[in-house]
Amino acid sequence: MLQMKTHYPDAHRIEPAKRHTLAVVVDNEPGVLARIAGLFSGRGYNIESLTVTETEHEAHISRITIVTTGTDSIIEQIKSQLERLVPVHRVVDLTLTGEAVERELCLVKVVGKGDYRVEAMRLASAFGARTLDATLTSFVYELTGTTGEVERFIKLMTAVGLVEVSRTGVAAMSRGAEGIM
């Protein structure tokens, strides 16, 4: 009683946090992304990656892929809270529906000469990266892969003169014949 400093209940539950990929189908109307991003920041949820583009132009429907981490109960809350938003049609937890296919694309600029340059070319070909631009002192590579592959590629390129990275974030889709629409 004497220790009570606040009238709010204590934070208590300790559960393991897991990474989940959510596909969110929304009306592509002004402010919809702000609504979703605001929901995450306002309620203290994490966003690790977020990608969005209109996927059905006639119907003005966009698909948002969000990678987030949280305990099972938090993930359930995130899903319910997203579904509560008026312009949100559907939320699918791709992590729960089985091993989803996940890919992201990165562009990497490396600058260097001599051995550095040769090593950069070797690494790029080992990863199957495409060369999009080359000068006498630089390359721009494109790599598509899982987040893990992209992370590894960038880490290795850092040692051979990486100067700039641009990543799209994760796009994901469930395996099998069933669609989410």
Partner: peptide
């Protein structure tokens, strides 16, 4: 009526 109230 609000699914987000459940198990919150």
């Amino acid at each position: 009526i609000d699914p987000s109230s459940i198990n919150k």
